[in-house]
Design a protein around this nucleic acid. Structure first.
Ligand SMILES: [Zn+2]
Ligand SMILES: [Zn+2]
Ligand SMILES: [Zn+2]
Ligand SMILES: [Zn+2]
Lengths: 137, 137
DNA sequence: AAATGATATGTTATGTTATTACGCTTGCGG
DNA sequence: CCGCAAGCGTAATAACATAACATATCATTT
């Protein structure tokens, strides 16, 4: 079974560094977190990171978590380039779980259709505690 | 029919000013937008606004839109103090529509139950174009 | 090879959003 | 009156994000 994080071969150096940092992290990172981890690689300015993140997010290789102002590597590259993705974010350990639900997507689509609203992008983020953290407590 | 925005009587002065500003606005406002509109009332510091917003959000009188870093008055005070609320945000005119969907809520609950994840808070925000803006274009 | 255009990069400065730290005030129950 | 909780005011700072401008890299066309 192939690893989900095989890195595409057509990334630029900065994109590759940023995606590598996200992939190596156990949880979401802010752009400035990423920058700090890449200073040894020569990155100096926030914009270098933000530009790489923009491309990665456009390509679905990374996601932005709006409620955290942070980013994660896509956990599941083969299936969600399109469509609605939900994130479950554990406040305890920072772990982020990524999932899709066709029923939710279709309910949203139905609402939008009824209202005449054209959906461009959907953010869905659940905050709480994961099973492991609940058990530990 | 009663107006949905009858203001509670037990707000502090700052809370009342902030909620009034949000209610008077046709779209979401950032904390700094609010501050600017309240300088004539004597407010000077971001914290005065953030503190008021925190209480208002806790009480369900206002909502934070994570994907915008901005706030709106609750459009529908009687029904969503609890439960999942979704927001549809028009990129054209800034209008925000607030709605609840029991099916979505139960799907999320089912996912969480299956994973052993304890949900504390959910953010759901749709970005796109409202019917009116689509027609105008 | 030279010119062009598209994409990526580097750098500085600045803008925007949010919080920390500290101290004063007000109202309220003991 | 005292002690405590909630609210308030102010200053400073932290955290997140973009604007503006210059340069570099690489493929395409002439
Ligand atoms: Zn993904
Ligand atoms: Zn956890
Ligand atoms: Zn509401
Ligand atoms: Zn609109």
């Amino acid at each position: 079974m192939a690893h989900s994080h095989d890195m595409p071969t057509d990334l630029t150096r900065n994109q590759e560094l940023v995606l590598g940092t996200l992939t190596a992290s156990s949880g979401p990172l802010s752009a400035y977190d990423i920058l700090d981890r890449l200073r040894t690689e020569g990155l100096r300015a926030p914009l270098q990171v933000y530009r790489a993140l923009e491309k990665l997010v456009d390509r679905g290789l990374a996601h932005r978590l709006e409620s955290l102002n942070a980013f994660v590597a896509c956990a599941d590259a083969h299936c969600h380039r399109k469509g609605l993705i939900a994130f479950a974010i554990c406040e305890g350990c920072g772990k982020v779980d990524e999932f899709a639900d066709a029923v939710i997507e279709s309910r949203l689509g139905a609402w939008a259709h009824a209202e005449g609203f054209k959906v461009e992008r959907t953010t869905m983020e659940i905050r709480g505690r994961c099973a492991q953290c609940l058990k530990a407590a």
